[in-house]
Amino acid sequence: MRFDIITVLPQLLDSPFAHSILQRAQKKGLCEIVVHNLRDYADNKHKSVDDYPYGGGSGMVMQVAPFAACIEQLQAQRSYDEIIFMTPDGDTLNQTIANHLSTKANLIILCGHYKGIDQRIRDIYVTRELSIGDYVLSGGELPAAVLVDAVVRLLPGVLSDETSALSDSFQGGLLDAPVYTRPADWNGHKVPDVLLSGNQAAINQWRDEQAIARTKSRRPDLLDD
């Protein structure tokens, strides 16, 4: 799976993609993450990619031409399943969307900055708009990293235990049950007896009950869905 990320600040993505699961996935050849500097596609000597908004108002707007040039160059090399713009007014990223995107081969992710990007890029090129929450960040780089992480961990072979992702919160429409590890008794705080019983049927039932109870308490909206 390949991700092409277009940003004006590529250095912001150096660390997220160079560690842990994302690093291992790339070394295994399970995914390819390529970050493109939008300024390389600017058509002026100062490498400027923003300008004042038509109609006045505060902030600067990212221009059409650099994004269009980069996107079209990439499209000339391969076909893309989605061109995704990370924006606060997009659909909220969830596990269902991550699952769906993990079945794709090639994705382009656009990172905005300043006041946003020219609407014509969204109208002409973007096929999907995603948000990671109802708040505004200084740019789309961190949301892009969140999206890539959520998708890559679902790819076959990325996690050492491939069943692990299937039991994550939200996979079955519920939050995950509590988890414990050694020691069984820490300062008088004990692991539930059922988890030490060796009775897998009872353990599975306990986990199901705990998942429902936790979801009902913390995210009852998921049960409504």
Rank of each mutant, 00 (worst) to 15 (best):
L110C: 10
S164K: 14
G173N: 12
S169I: 05
A144R: 09
L159I: 08
W186P: 13
C70V: 05
T87D: 03
F170I: 06
A105R: 10
V151E: 02
I109S: 02
A69K: 15
D89G: 04
V152H: 04
E72A: 05
R128W: 06
K115N: 09
D149Q: 13
V126H: 08
T127P: 10
P53H: 01
L137C: 06
I108L: 03
A76I: 02
A98V: 01
I124N: 14
L101T: 00
N106F: 00
L110R: 01
P178W: 11
F170E: 05
E82W: 00
D123H: 12
Y135G: 10
D51K: 09
D50N: 06
S48D: 12
A65L: 13
C70F: 05
K104D: 01
V158M: 05
I108Q: 03
G172Y: 13
D161P: 05
G133K: 12
T96C: 11
R122Y: 08
P53C: 03
I117G: 11
K115P: 04
S58L: 14
A184E: 15
L154N: 08
V136N: 10
Y54W: 09
Q75L: 03
W186V: 15
N106T: 04
A165H: 14
H113L: 12
V158L: 07
I84E: 00
E82Q: 07
S138M: 10
L107D: 01
Y180G: 13
L174M: 11
D185C: 14
D168A: 13
L154C: 08
D91S: 09
V64F: 08
E82Y: 00
Q119L: 10
Q63I: 03
Y180N: 14
V148F: 09
I124S: 13
R122E: 12
I109Q: 02
C111K: 04
Y54I: 05
L154M: 14
A68G: 04
Y114M: 09
N44P: 00
I71W: 01
I83H: 00
N99T: 10
L174F: 11
V158W: 04
M86E: 00
T103A: 12
Q63F: 06
D89A: 07
L166K: 15
Q75G: 01
L110Q: 05
D185Y: 14
D118Q: 06
L174G: 08
R153Q: 11
G56R: 04
I132L: 11
Y135W: 09
D176W: 07
L147I: 09
L110T: 01
I109K: 01
K115Y: 03
G139S: 13
G112N: 05
T181L: 11
A98N: 00
V126I: 12
G116E: 03
A42W: 02
D43H: 12
P178F: 08
G59H: 09
Q73F: 03
A105M: 08
G56K: 05
A65N: 07
V146Y: 07
I121R: 10
V152E: 02
G157A: 12
S160W: 11
I71D: 00
D43Y: 07
D91F: 04
S79I: 00
L174R: 11
D81L: 02
I71T: 02
Y114K: 09
